[in-house]
Design a protein around this nucleic acid. Sequence first.
DNA 1: GATGAATGAGTATTCATTCAT
DNA 2: TATGAATGAATACTCATTCAT
Lengths: 211, 211, 211, 211
Amino acid sequence: MPKRTFFRLDEDKKERIIRAAIDEFHKNGFENAKIGNIADEAQIAKGSIYQYFEDKKELFMYSINWSLDYFMKNIDYSSPVEEMDPFDYLLSDGHKKLELLKKEKVMVYFFKDIMTGKFGAMTKEINDYLWKIGDEHLLKLIDVGIKKGTIRSDVDKNLLLLFYKGVTMQMDEYVFLKAEEDVFDLSDEKFTQIENYIKNIVELMKHGMGC
Amino acid sequence: MPKRTFFRLDEDKKERIIRAAIDEFHKNGFENAKIGNIADEAQIAKGSIYQYFEDKKELFMYSINWSLDYFMKNIDYSSPVEEMDPFDYLLSDGHKKLELLKKEKVMVYFFKDIMTGKFGAMTKEINDYLWKIGDEHLLKLIDVGIKKGTIRSDVDKNLLLLFYKGVTMQMDEYVFLKAEEDVFDLSDEKFTQIENYIKNIVELMKHGMGC
Amino acid sequence: MPKRTFFRLDEDKKERIIRAAIDEFHKNGFENAKIGNIADEAQIAKGSIYQYFEDKKELFMYSINWSLDYFMKNIDYSSPVEEMDPFDYLLSDGHKKLELLKKEKVMVYFFKDIMTGKFGAMTKEINDYLWKIGDEHLLKLIDVGIKKGTIRSDVDKNLLLLFYKGVTMQMDEYVFLKAEEDVFDLSDEKFTQIENYIKNIVELMKHGMGC
Amino acid sequence: MPKRTFFRLDEDKKERIIRAAIDEFHKNGFENAKIGNIADEAQIAKGSIYQYFEDKKELFMYSINWSLDYFMKNIDYSSPVEEMDPFDYLLSDGHKKLELLKKEKVMVYFFKDIMTGKFGAMTKEINDYLWKIGDEHLLKLIDVGIKKGTIRSDVDKNLLLLFYKGVTMQMDEYVFLKAEEDVFDLSDEKFTQIENYIKNIVELMKHGMGC
DNA sequence: GATGAATGAGTATTCATTCAT
DNA sequence: TATGAATGAATACTCATTCAT
């Protein structure tokens, strides 16, 4: 948890610092991230970082939290969508992700780094926490699906979760790759191409790949 | 590529070195892995490492190659199985993995670290290479499935690959977690529990989670 | 010398600041003393310290002066006692010191730190000054003793001073140690024990340890 | 305790390192002593210091031990002298100290710093140890004196110790100051002046300053 | 070839001091 | 004047790599 001096900062500065941190952590990983770079990028003095955060680790942790919050707010990863069928959700969600990708590339990547476990040992603690949050969210979706009758009820929910998650992540991976191809802007063609892919994947999730 | 001095070493020493490296890299990640620890563990002088490898990175890369080879040889990840149906393959493969897990815990974990992208930037290069190999392998399996009529042929193969991979990885993840619970030895009960899970997952892959 | 802003402060605040400083300097030495701690302890803002003192060193120097003054006033280290025989003086002085120890532990210790030279190089300047003051005081005492016929007159006065000082300091050291044993309060028993010791020491000073 | 790599060094290098350390610690105290300075002065790489010592503190501690040993060996502070009368001992000891002062100024000062407690908190532990050694040594001397009949036996030995120590230290202080006056070499005149002082002090110790 | 000692570049963190409010 | 946030200089320590034996 940042020191209170951090919270007293004006929004712009706070955001500059965290975005600088996210950028650095994403580019170089935790170990190789230099506090100096972050300070420079955020246009503050190196020492100031320590006025706001206990140490590098705390800054890192908070960066994670911050990006988590960010996505919660912006992708509505949290609640209202909960009445949506998980398959529909995927479709809409995928769309939103594409828009985010265009706007918040770095942060999305950072978020992906986290979820992928790229920060490894460093995050064991927070990693578990993040997973739990994500899983809970997905389980709710699955529940809705079962209730609505779009998801089979003869299989253990955890198994469904695992299945859903696996396919979803793979799909995200694909979307990322595709989006990466256009460094600056996604063409409409690419856009529909991606949406098509997602539709197909969802179809596979529903009916399986077997005959 | 190691220097030729390395290849002149006797098998035992070579293996000791690589296994020590794998252990250290797995435990601490690339940045925090200490050459000194590896040398100690391998019972050779620190300086000797540099007689065999250009630098830390080369040792790391070779460790990856080595473990890749190891699995190729031991899990038959390469050829003969190719006539097998991908679903059957999963079942048998899963079984083999369990046996490997018991025998080569550290190396399996290291391998997982690699495939998961935990070494991040460090491996971008090799990562792509590994994925390509893996993907090729899986695509062959899928082809077999289509030919044998166990996999639907109305969907793009790359999509099937993506789907198959996603579910597979998630399944592996689960197996790892389960296996981890028994630090020293897997009980038979746990063993069948895991196999059951795999069966169910395969069933989901075949028929999907939709109604 | 503190800035004039300091002298404009009310007594209570001034004392709070100096006592906080003394406490910190005593506990951590000059180098490790933290201005922040002093400010916290004195319940003022860190920046205010610099409103009163040029820098850390000036605060330190003034703390020394302050404690010196304090003892001058409170132990009557200066004048009226001057008609007293140095041996009698020691006895009475010793008693007073015990009382002070109970009331002003920290400051006494700080004072001892100074006289002992614990602040080393930092005080070279002030140290000389302090010694001079102390020596002058003691020389007066010795003069009185010679005049009163309680001290031999066949020895160089500086030598007597040196002798007197050495034994005295050692005695103080002992008193401090004893006093330290009772963290909160000196028992009467300990009290008389200490006084006895002092008496014996004084006897040794008078007649020597030889046969 | 230094690492064994240190003990494998040739005598010259070892001595260069320790003397450089002693010099730096004496000049700047523990906190302000810079490892870099020590390394430079000893003509070795900064990192090498850490090949020999765990950290700054260990180097400091060993420097103390080393100078202690040095004086033990060179001033015969340990045993054979033990049959000597403490007063005679002081005389001879004083003489030796003068010679040492000329040869090993810095180290003598460092030693004095230690015994004076100038390193304060840092040494609480070792300080006690040093005092104990010193006290034991002195107590033996006093015992000899009592046995030989040159010291009165009607006084508590610890009191005698305290007395003896106080006067001795003060005397040393004086000698140091005198010696300091001649930066490069002690004139014979100064030499005899000092010896005279010592004789007088010893006389005072024997017969006291009272009438 | 093998060894392990020597090297020195590289960086998080602290804290006295300054400064804007 | 009081405040406390901002600043940045300063330094112990690590460890990959080199090198002398």
